[in-house]
């Protein structure tokens, strides 16, 4: 063993150690965020986002430690699929959460979607009167009507 490869090994070990600890810290951050954030939407931030970086760091450390070049394509593909799927799942949960009003209006400084939703709900309200209107279960839900009547969700600013 010449000293140069030994030094290289030490550097690789040190880098992967740091990456692994920081990556684990990101998972810890997700857990803390899940516990401490107040509503579904802000929890989604904590639940999905730190993993983008956390998984990147862990996979990078793994690639460094495996010392084989053919491990890299798998790791890259794993991360890319994570990048492709995380926003979709976050969006679907966030969207469902918004529509079922799993949020605290008093914790929003502004809500520019509210007015648009109310307008759309108003249009659907007319459809409601003729039974031929499509998507009946959505338009006829008491949830939407509550909004039109100026329920607790309306007029938050």
């Amino acid at each position: 063993m010449n000293p140069e490869t030994l030094l290289g090994d030490t550097v690789i070990d040190a880098v992967s150690a740091v990456f692994m600890v920081v990556g684990a810290l990101m998972s810890l951050g997700a857990a803390i965020g899940l516990l401490r954030f107040p509503d579904l939407m802000s929890r989604m931030h904590a639940a999905t986002k730190p993993q983008v970086l956390g998984l990147f760091l862990l996979l990078f450390a793994l690639g460094l430690q495996l010392r084989t070049w053919w491990a890299w394509p798998v790791l890259v593909v794993a991360w890319l699929f994570q990048l492709l799927t995380v926003p979709v799942s976050a969006h679907m949960v966030g969207r469902a959460g918004y529509r079922t009003k799993h949020l605290h209006p008093e914790l929003l400084s502004s809500d520019e979607l509210e007015a648009v939703v109310q307008q759309a709900a108003g249009k659907r309200g007319f459809d409601d009167e003729n039974p031929a209107g499509f998507n009946p279960d959505d338009a006829g839900s008491p949830d939407r009507r509550g909004r039109l009547d100026g329920g607790p969700g309306a007029g938050s600013a």
Binding site: M26, G29, I32, G33, F37, P38, K49, P50, S109, V116
Partner: peptide, 29 residues
Amino acid sequence: FLAKVVAASFQVLSLAVVRGPLVISAVVA
């Protein structure tokens, strides 16, 4: 993009620890 992800990850982490339940959000068009 990667730099932004790193910076924002730590920002959200610190938000979770420091402000927690009092965090104020917004829906922006």
